[in-house]
């Protein structure tokens, strides 16, 4: 048997397995690119306001965008001022969300957006958004946050209603956080 041949081949196979380990990690950015292209995980796109303003407006139809708010393990109140708005594709839409820190502590939160149906999320872009940024709220602070968005004219005809959902999470490791207001999330048991 050719010992160097064996070692050579074994070395290559070890390299292959290390490469595949790296590939596992490479799947993370690949996945994000793939999601941007296909809307796989319902995350939305971002466009500059110049691009958005130059978009052609489709006057033939109206799309309803409903707003949904969620909070997880964070002592804030989080609401959309309007429950839904109607926009024409290509037209700039706007929504205002109100966040109130109900606790007596400084709390940092971060909002994650999600659009349903997921297939439509590629056609939904924001020019201005508070999402993904860390938001520091002083005790008792109330703040209005705006989202400006545009629905692409290429949105397939079959989608006439979209939902834009935000979930505010507490940034991990900033001490204990909790609680939301009873009026908003009272359970009827």
């Amino acid at each position: 048997m050719d010992k160097s041949g064996v070692n050579n081949l074994a070395g290559k196979l070890v390299m292959l397995s290390l490469t595949m380990f790296g590939f596992g990690y490479a799947l993370v950015p690949l996945y994000n690119v793939f999601c941007d292209l296909t809307g796989l995980n319902g995350k939305t796109g971002v466009v500059s306001s110049e691009v958005a303003e130059k978009m052609e407006v489709d006057m033939t139809r109206v799309v309803t965008v409903a707003f949904d708010t969620n909070i997880r393990e964070i002592p804030w109140e989080f609401e959309a001022l309007e429950k839904k708005v109607s926009v024409r594709p290509g037209e700039m839409g706007e929504a205002t969300f109100v966040v109130t820190n109900k606790s007596d502590r400084k709390v940092i939160g971060r909002a994650i957006p999600s659009v349903a149906p997921t297939q439509a999320s590629v056609f939904f872009s924001k020019t201005e958004c508070f999402c993904f940024d860390e938001q520091l709220m002083e005790p008792g602070e109330r703040r209005e946050m705006k989202v400006r968005f545009v629905v692409d004219v290429d949105l397939p005809q079959r989608y006439s209603a979209l939902t834009l959902s935000y979930t505010f999470f507490a940034i991990p490791n900033q001490g204990k956080v909790a609680v939301e207001d009873k009026e908003l999330f009272r359970s009827r048991i």
């Binding site: 909070i71 997880r72 393990e73 964070i74 002592p75 204990k176 956080v177 909790a178 609680v179 939301e180 009873k182 999330f185 009272r186 359970s187 048991i189």
Partner: peptide
């Protein structure tokens, strides 16, 4: 009860239930 115990199955019930409950 309000804030739970991180790292265990004890959830924070603050966000789920009202003060009365």
């Amino acid at each position: 009860v309000l804030n739970g115990k991180p790292g265990t199955a004890m959830l924070a019930y603050g966000p789920q239930l009202s003060n009365e409950e």
